[in-house]
Design a protein around this nucleic acid. Structure first.
Lengths: 121, 121
DNA sequence: TATATTGTGCATACACGGTATACACAATCT
DNA sequence: AGATTGTGTATACCGTGTATGCACAATATA
């Protein structure tokens, strides 16, 4: 649970937590079958509420990234590398759709965005 | 005031309104010196509260896109085309910085993002 | 000058989401 | 049986977004 959370961020804590863990899973930093720390322990380590951790875990389960067994714990799902890439692309492209609609509303073309992206990235 | 607002959007109404107006100004659809409708009238037309309109107008003023004269109204600032492009790029790149940090956290390279962008845009 | 219009400021209120605490219950492990 | 872990629920607090209403300041107009 080496995760830095910001309470001043525009994003809620459970969202930040979800994004961090899902990124770790999809990048293979958390192995298939790995048992996540108990929600109480995670809550204590991160100095947040159990409910907040739970919410993040629920999001992970909804995305098929972990599976939960009551009384045992929460485990990283068994996913192939290809499947992980697929899920990652789905998540990113979904977000990118929102991001680009903003760019478009200001009249930017694809080339405009790419040019600006090269400066920023 | 031909603006469609969504109350189910993730973004607050005043934010949506701000983005729409600022885009119209920066694209030159609203001419320099143009007088925006009175906040009460705008509120009524859009079926929202005066405060919400006010908040959007304040954001516009903070960005230097309009100037307000108490008792007269709110007017589109006198900006050159170059200045408008500059402001636009500042606004977009600022947002893009946040967007890309999300992409990066999932391990995407610049080429990854560009490739996905071409599909989505 | 008087009235209307417009922007400003403040008080109040409500809804919702995010967060926290605490307790009880279910499932599992030892 | 007792400890651990996940689940569910009730309660509460706070900040933000939103709405309503009223009073005030500045301007325009008759």
């Amino acid at each position: 649970m080496n995760i830095a959370l910001s309470n001043t961020s525009d994003k809620p804590i459970y969202q930040q937590l979800f994004e961090r863990i899902s990124a770790q899973i999809l990048k293979g930093e958390l192995e298939n079958g790995y048992c996540l720390p108990p929600i109480r322990q995670a809550a204590q380590e991160l100095s947040i509420s159990v409910i907040t951790v739970k919410k993040a875990w629920e999001e992970l389960e909804r995305c098929g990234l972990i599976h939960t067994i009551t009384g045992k714990g929460c485990f990283v799902a068994e996913l192939s590398s290809d499947r992980k890439l697929q899920i990652r692309d789905e998540m990113i492209s979904k977000q990118m759709l929102l991001d680009t609609s903003y760019y478009k509303s200001f009249g930017l073309t694809l080339d405009d965005v790419i040019a600006m992206l090269k400066k920023v990235y």
